[in-house]
Design a protein around this nucleic acid. Structure first.
Length: 135
RNA sequence: CUACAAACCCGAACUAUCGAGUUAUAAGUAAUUAUAAUUAGGAAAGUCUGGACAGCAUAGAGCAACUCACCGGCGAAUAACCGGUCUCGUGAUAAACGAGAAGAAAGUGCCACAGAAAAUAACUUCAUACUUAGGUAUGACAAAGGUGAAAAUGUGAGGUAAGAGCUCACAGUAUUGCAAAGUAAUUUGCGAUACGGGUAAACCUUGAGUGCUGCAAUGCCACGUAUAGAGCCGUUUUAAGAGCUGCUCGUUCAAGGCUCAGGGUAGGCAGCAACAGGUGUUAAGUAAUUAGCAUCGCAGAUAAAUGAUAGUGUAAAAACAGAAUCCGGCUUAUGAGGUUUGUAGCUUU
């Protein structure tokens, strides 16, 4: 069992192969200022959700700013992930998700904090739709 | 005390809640869990340099290419660090600061505009020859022309028809002999010779030096595919081709090799965090630095940890900014303040 608000190394999306597959064949939607890529994996694994975060180096040239955005994205996901975890565990799915920040302005923590529950809700909705069409 | 300049220091703190990487200990067959410790910089940046380390080569020679260029010291090493010498600039002929440093008398080239001329000087001048004249050709020597960033070393005297380093004196620059000082660059003094510009960041010459590639190096383990296809060369020591830096020579290996197209993998471990280590102190040295003693263990990720929120507090949750093999130096960016030194001003005595 995972702890309630933890975000360990195991939950990170690390494999280069999985990432390439995610961007090539995965679905996506945009909730400004974040673009979300997601894909359902067929092989079951020990950890059901894997998360990656990213910022375009074209929009933010300095590494300090990119680090800051990635940390904020991870932090807001960590705090707000419980509904998604419950949904995934309940339906026995296995998904990979990637959050890509697309705005060109530095975000505030308040903004992302308000957006993240919306994103999670939308994600749950989309995942349940796909499972209906698949079955 | 204030202002300015330079150098150096610092690069905010504490509490609570939630979370991440690494290490250690304990529990567990294991996944893992618990506890404790620890977790970004002065530039981590630019990648401009010197090394360490690793692989390849070690059969070399020549050419090419690149780097450097006053002297000494330091150091693993460097043109780059420290100290000194000389020249130039700012400045007050000072102090201080800044810039520079083989060769222009080996050769080639270039020097805008203006100017007679920008470098084997000669337009205006003079002499001679030719010509009806205007002028043309050859030779001579150089003061003045008021242009330019730069014009043939400057001043004075002699000399002469008038002039000219033509001669002399003093001064300047360069080379050089002797003596003294200094480890040396060099300086000072007494002489000799020469004086017809700059540019070497234009080519170049001289001297010294440099194997090539960089941790995406490299070694190992695991997984996986195609033993399919097309083209070219060779299998006759008369050898295709490959290695040895870029080329040439030379040399070694050599029976399969090269190209196209296509397919697979892209995980893990080591390298990789203990040292040209950090901090403090004493001694030597102008300093860079070195030596002794004490003490500390000080990031190690891999789509990539080092964080988020709230409060205390403050003028302000602050500027520049995020390790990626590791060290030395350089360069660039940078908030608020502090210390020291120098200069100027004011006040007091």
């Amino acid at each position: 069992m995972l702890k309630k608000f933890s975000f360990s190394k195991k939950e990170k999306l690390k494999s280069r192969k999985q990432l390439a597959q995610l961007f090539a064949t995965g679905k996506y939607f945009t909730t400004f200022p974040v673009k979300i890529f997601f894909i359902e994996n067929q092989k079951p694994e020990a950890i059901n959700i894997k998360i990656g975060v990213g910022v375009s180096s074209r929009n933010f040239k300095k590494a300090v700013e990119r680090n800051r955005i990635k940390r904020l994205l991870r932090e807001t996901y960590r705090v707000n992930k419980m509904p998604l975890v419950d949904f995934i565990d309940g339906n026995k799915k296995n998904v990979s998700i990637f959050f890509l920040y697309i705005d060109k302005v530095m975000p505030t923590h308040v903004l992302l904090k308000s957006k993240m529950p919306v994103i999670i809700d939308k994600l749950i909705k989309q995942l349940s739709e796909t499972s209906i069409t698949n079955t």
